[in-house]
């Protein structure tokens, strides 16, 4: 539907329809998925945009597909649907814990994977660190074509995406990893976590770490990997106490963001404990099998 009809929210019926409607609206328009961020604009004292294209109901964007090599998650898969699809799947414990710990049950029925990754003003995304340490890629669709970029790249460029760009899905390569996700909210639910640590580890038959990814969320404006800690852990057994000590010595690489909920120094100070808990969760994920 052309933007000229004046409806502020046009609900697209297919991916092609959404791409065309977004192209038609140009910089004035934006996708609306679960709407849980956009609808809170008045609370944040922000203006709504003049035009949105609803994508949450598009069937092509709502499925989780698994092959032997890959897991493909549609951008409009909700947190609740993600949990249902990936519970018990090897390597996905951390991601399922991230989706299951975020927000509250009703919001998890609404908020989508794509919306969670694309909200550039939201530092406390749980899915971002969980997917970063799974080396996830993101599929982008623009009127001029489509491309796949690493999630870390999307987090860097999401503020300056060409108008009309849609994230259509997230792709994870299936690898024999154990994953853990650890977050520190100040209440049971409703508030955002002060800090988040996600971890994915591949252990060799000798019990030594062959590959490890650690990602930190909510401490800085965007989630990011912790390569220095990864390098120190590589080649050793996964010992949560040792990981805690190394994290404690190395947290200086993070500059915690200040906000009314928590001061920056506190976000950084809790990281070693979250590293230890994420390591414990990753070990427990391995032992279950």
């Amino acid at each position: 539907m052309p933007a000229s009809t004046g409806e502020r929210l046009y609900v697209a019926t297919s991916l092609a329809d959404a791409v065309a409607a977004l192209a038609d609206r140009g910089p004035a328009g934006a996708p609306l998925a679960g709407a849980t961020w956009i609808m809170r604009a008045p609370i944040r004292r922000e203006e709504l945009r003049s035009s949105y294209v609803g994508i949450g109901g598009i069937a092509e964007l709502r499925s989780v597909e698994m092959t032997d090599d890959e897991i493909h998650i549609g951008a409009c898969v909700t947190h609740a649907d993600l949990i249902a699809a990936l519970a018990g799947v090897e390597g996905c414990d951390g991601l399922v814990a991230a989706a299951g710990g975020a927000a509250n049950p009703a919001v998890r029925q609404m908020a989508t994977v794509g919306g969670n990754l694309c909200t550039s003003d939201f530092p406390a995304s749980d899915l971002s660190p969980a997917l970063l340490c799974l080396d996830a890629s993101v599929e982008l669709r623009t009127p001029s074509g489509q491309e796949r970029v690493p999630l870390g790249r999307l987090l860097d460029i999401r503020r300056t995406l060409e108008p009309g760009t849609l994230v259509t899905g997230v792709v994870i390569a299936r690898k024999p990893v154990q994953t853990g996700h650890s977050r520190l909210p100040l209440r049971k639910a409703g508030d955002y976590p002060v800090a988040i640590v996600s971890m994915a580890v591949a252990l060799g038959s000798d019990g030594l770490i062959e590959d490890i990814k650690v990602a930190v969320g909510s401490v800085e404006a965007s989630a990011r990997r912790w390569p220095q800690l990864e390098a120190q852990l590589l080649g050793h057994p996964l010992d949560p106490a040792k990981a805690y000590e190394l994290a404690k010595a190395g947290v200086g690489v993070f500059a915690g963001r200040e906000s009314v909920e928590a001061p920056g120094w506190y976000r950084v100070q809790v990281l070693p404990t979250l590293v230890r808990r994420a390591a414990q969760a990753a070990l427990a994920a391995r032992q279950q099998r």
Binding site: E7, L32, T36, M39, R40, Y52, G57, A106, Q109, G190
Partner: peptide, 28 residues
């Protein structure tokens, strides 16, 4: 009006949602 308190919860296609964050047109 921000998804925290749950007072506005209704069922949408059988699932609980916070209706303060559901835009009308998406319920067509």
């Amino acid at each position: 009006r921000e998804g925290i308190c749950g007072a506005c919860t209704v069922h949408l296609d059988g699932r609980p949602v916070v209706s303060c964050l559901v835009p009308l047109a998406t319920v067509e």
